[in-house]
Design a protein around this nucleic acid. Structure first.
Lengths: 196, 196, 196, 196
DNA sequence: GATGAATGAGCGTTCATTCAT
DNA sequence: GATGAATGAACGCTCATTCAT
């Protein structure tokens, strides 16, 4: 179990360092120092620098998926689930700035291989959104003419764009609750003033 | 005249190479080869590698701003303008895959300096969205309770997330027109089935 | 232990290479090859190329100072001390051609920083000369009207100019002993034939 | 004659730039800018960068030789001639800081080729000293047991070491006249207090 | 398993030199 | 002759990875 500890320690250190400096500017020695292990030790647990990045996702996004699935429950309506997903994502990103940055920056960065990866692990997280949309369409809450996969991209794109704000712009002072309300409301009832 | 040509040639080559390999994996020699100039020639027009990246934005996003402003016109309603913006952005991204990738990937990648930069040039493009929202709120078309800057982030986030689809996922086969309708509709009237 | 060895090995190699090619024509890879280490290894012990040059001085001139101070002793007269200094300097320069060249060539070359440095470490060596002069003036052996710092410059300038001869001119065949006598005599009693 | 003007202009500019930055840190473009010609123009008058350095010597030291020969005259005693040479050299170095630096720094720097050159042009200047010594020995003024070529090196080394002082150390405030007296006196009658 | 010194391939950048105008 | 844009070889330095201890 001790070796698993080191593995985790390195993942945690890497998350911090990647968030702080970006993948390409992060040095193996930075991660090693942050994790308080020797440079060489990292190679006992990971094949190469890129492998660490992938593991960071696997680890952190795994936790994210687990957590949000727990919150969503089974009895909630699709509408409530969408609210929960949005609120939770924003809260998590606000809380864990390292993860937020890693998702935002790194997910885009290392194109080819990440893209492959995205089809697997990260996609699982995104699929939760699509599933909620489909559920809402099935029970007549959500419009039938909206394509679930496009809606999913809209939702995630919006959330992700917002997240970056907290960690880069100093004048982004809205709370997760405020933003969550805004986005949920916007996505549910739209920008237009409703005709009565 | 001639020097402007070279400048443009290098920008164009850099856009292509950055899109293909990402900033950090792009080599100056790759750009030089693509532009059919010597490595050293690049440094007659740019201070360093990063400066090339910034110039790619300045150049390409400048064109984007100019073009969309032309399309928006002055007489259109805010609602129409939002449609135009969305449609145009998607069409441009579909057309110019290099720009799409550079925006998507690089904008996030090179954190610190880009963030500064984002506040200037790229922000101008984003501000167009916020201005449309505000215009719509002023004339009573758009809801007053939606914060324009948050709406702007939602819109851009959604568009950007969609754009990546075309250039990474092979199974993203929707046309700009289809996607444009979906997003416009979703953002305007929301996901919920309207109560009658 | 081991790391000190590498440090020394690199210093020694650098001394040789700098002497052979001069600072600017010396390549890091030349030094690495001479020291039988990898290029990168050098940067584990030195910050940059210039730092190597400074270290060569620190190391070699440190040894020079230590050695001459030992020889000078405390009981010798100022006159004897001057003789010893001159003889020793010439012998050392004859023996260690690399050091001779590095002092002669490099000391002048890399102006700004070296000048600072000269005020510190190398100056210590020069100050020995001035101290001897002052001692001789105090005990009435040397003329009072000669300024010690000027005399010091004359002595060192003369010695340095001579040193280069051995390593550049093939027709400089005087032995250290011969030259030492010449210089000592010249500086002590002057060029003029003494009136009787 | 116009082309000779350019040649001279470049030489003058190069002297200034070499003195300011040293040979290796001087850029052809620096010299071109200083001379107010295009980079390429320099190659119409010189074969390469090093050729410029050689020409600087040829030009400047040529003037030095001409000037000192004029001053020395033919009727002066060897003793007076030595005084004149010393005084003139110091005055020139004080006056023309560029030349002083170029002689001092560059003469040592570019080892191999300069050494060859030294045997020719610069040597002519040094030979003047040796000739004076020999003349003094011939007429019985100077000691017979001092080797002229060694004395020459002592004289030049001393003068050169002094010159650097003015252009590097801020606390070197002696005037040429003071230093000239000191050196002349030291070299003529020596350090030792004369026995009576 | 853990270390961290050593490696060396690789890249951004500079600048002397060339040559079309 | 004069120009200065273009060239591309060359080098200092970095850092992911290895391996002897």
């Amino acid at each position: 179990m001790k070796s698993t500890d080191k593995h985790r320690k390195i993942i945690r250190a890497a998350t911090k360092v990647f968030a702080r400096k970006g993948f390409y500017n992060a040095r193996i020695s930075d991660i090693a120092k942050e994790a308080k292990v020797a440079d060489g030790t990292i190679y006992l647990y990971f094949n190469n620098k890129f492998d660490i990045l992938l593991s960071v996702f696997e680890q952190e996004i795994g936790k994210l998926i687990e957590h949000v699935n727990l919150l969503l429950g089974k009895k909630n309506s699709a509408r409530t689930k969408l609210e929960i997903f949005i609120t939770n994502h924003l809260e998590e990103m606000k809380k864990n700035r390292y993860l937020a940055e890693v998702i935002h920056i790194e997910l885009r960065q290392t194109t080819k291989i990440i893209r492959e990866y995205r089809k697997n692990a990260f996609n699982e997280y995104l699929m939760i959104i699509a599933a909620i949309i489909e559920e809402g369409q099935a029970d007549g809450t959500f419009r039938q003419d909206i394509l679930p996969d496009i809606a999913q991209q809209v939702v995630f794109g919006a959330l992700d764009e917002i997240s970056i704000c907290w960690h880069t712009d100093s004048d982004c002072t809205y709370t997760p609750a405020e933003v969550s309300y805004q986005i949920t409301s916007l996505l549910q009832t739209g920008l237009l003033v409703q005709a009565t």
